[in-house]
Nucleic acid binder design. Sequence first.
DNA 1: AGCGCGCGTCAAGGAACCATCAAGACGCCG
DNA 2: CGGCGTCTTGATGGTTCCTTGACGCGCGCT
Lengths: 254, 254
Amino acid sequence: MREDTDLASTIHHNQPDDTGTHPPARAPRILVVDDEPPIADLVAGYVSREGWEARVVADGIAAVSAVRDFEPDVVVLDLMLPGLDGIEVCRQLRGFSDAYVLMLTARSEEVDRVAGLTVGADDYLAKPFSPRELVARIKALLRRPRSSTAHLRSTGPPGLAVDEDRRSVRVDGRDVELTAIEFAVLAALTRQPGIVLSRARLFREVWGGVNFADDHLVDVHIGNIRRKLGDNAADPRFIDTVRGVGYRLREARP
Amino acid sequence: MREDTDLASTIHHNQPDDTGTHPPARAPRILVVDDEPPIADLVAGYVSREGWEARVVADGIAAVSAVRDFEPDVVVLDLMLPGLDGIEVCRQLRGFSDAYVLMLTARSEEVDRVAGLTVGADDYLAKPFSPRELVARIKALLRRPRSSTAHLRSTGPPGLAVDEDRRSVRVDGRDVELTAIEFAVLAALTRQPGIVLSRARLFREVWGGVNFADDHLVDVHIGNIRRKLGDNAADPRFIDTVRGVGYRLREARP
DNA sequence: AGCGCGCGTCAAGGAACCATCAAGACGCCG
DNA sequence: CGGCGTCTTGATGGTTCCTTGACGCGCGCT
């Protein structure tokens, strides 16, 4: 999949990305594809209420072109569509977009029947669904990292090892216990060593969604991480503070 | 079977992404075995986009011979196949190849898997699946150390022996009786010792499908497993709780 | 040098999370 | 058709940890 097997393609792709300074975070964009107006409007309503930008199209062909110029982060896609069906749309999207696809299916039983065909979406939801659940699923997708392989390359500071699969952190060979949020924050930093991540960016990576409440929250967690890592804010070994911006994982000296 | 052989020639998009550990001299090779061309192509597409070499065959007999001369690192194997079915193919492969096998199952076939009919696969994935998940699983397999006797994996915690073929569980030499679901949950954990599995992931491994109903359900079964294993949640010997995420099988400390 | 603002630390209330218990629902077998 | 084991759902309590606020220090600007 798109992801980032090469870095060049990731950088300018439609990732909501302010690495701190210049552009303010834009609202996530959600494309809703459904040929039944009441349902489409309903979905769009919930999406808007979350502060996300919504666009609605009613058939497969329109969906594909809408993805091109709307560049959504998530596509909510009905399986049954006039023109191209959801499966075909999904497939075409894969060719040029790294948007996550949330497929809507008529009934949970039908998932079985068409299981072989619906392969390719990132998540599924059976109709009828609760709006809460729909929003929760979209949030989960927005929270997913765009790059699944980035952490493998990371050359963080010597003595620090972060394993996202095992969810383990080691400092000089000694295991360190972190809480869920602390781990997520550290992992976000580790994914891009040497890059300054703004608090807003960190918040979105860890908490997901858009609305972020307080910079201070991030500070506190960073503080706790430092304490557990045995790091010192005044003379940091692992996490640099970039005043006025955010935090940065130190790199191995080249 | 219609068109079988390598329709999905190799599309080298980007730099072959070494999966982290050992630098593979050549690009990893993935054999895709599925009799439904759309799915096979889809899978092959994702594989190629990762920079891996893909070959596609459509039936079991072709699969066996393809393994011989293509020498893949990973075989993505549909359970339902014309000719030899996935289980039989898998069994034959074990005789002469140390390729890892990732089995694809439809949701309705999940019952069979829980019943222990499928044997010998290194990982399972239920249809419909997310392409990102498929790639992640393949990466996980590629990352595994390659042993000539591939069966002897799962270096779980000392004192615990889980035999998927035999469907038996032993703790300190004593047999423990587990129900079908309990065994499936424990086996999922055992398949990747040390790796944290989210509740959602566990649910999908055991119950199949992408939608999952209730986290709590997993909790209860974990609780029952622990009780039967003589494990203690507060100070676990076998199964760690990773708060906010899921569960993890403890590893033998190397 | 003085001052303001950003950041680090500490502490406490409250929410989220998980383990356990219990009872209802389901399927399987006799 | 009835009984039993298993799966599922609900409720409860204990524990962790997320969040918020207050306070003090020091960097950097004027």
